[in-house]
Amino acid sequence: MTDSDKILIYGYGNPGRQDDGLGAAFIQKVDDFIIQNTLHHIVTDCNYQLNIEDADTVSKATAVVFVDASQEENIEHFSLSEVDASDARVEFSMHAVSPSFVIDLCRKIYGVTPIAWLIHIKGYEWDFKEEMSEKAKENLEMAFDFFKPFLLTKQPLTLINALTTEN
């Protein structure tokens, strides 16, 4: 990794739907951490959902970490997994697309394939409120504590590979 390499942390979800805002809340924590620690190699982005234009956004990064809320039963607090572009498929909800879809589209259009991971943070409540559930907040803290070394290290790709294996 060189000094010019950028790592993009991209959170998505609707903060107006309680725990669906976990991705945005994670990005807020990352933004604060970047300022506190004067980090230049990390950039962030955030939106309601991923969409096709994000293929352009991720094409400018060496590595991407997507952050999303999850309803998955088999996730206890959070999970970290590598995004496989070959998993891209047409999904039901086509006003939004998945991380693998974004990476695959980036590969097909721009000929580059940033290494990508997905942090899924377990959520529980999805109503029309800003406030996240207490359990979701705890999961957010756990996920961020787990992820902090990644933000600080000079060798983030090596570290995140290690974290993925560990997780």
Binding site: I52, E53, T57, K108, I109
Partner: peptide, 19 residues
């Protein structure tokens, strides 16, 4: 993604118009 494979210029237009 099928468009990107067969007509990449059109796919780029879609992506950048959105952006």
């Amino acid at each position: 993604i099928g468009i990107a494979l067969t007509n990449p210029a059109l796919a780029v237009q879609g992506v950048m118009m959105r952006k």
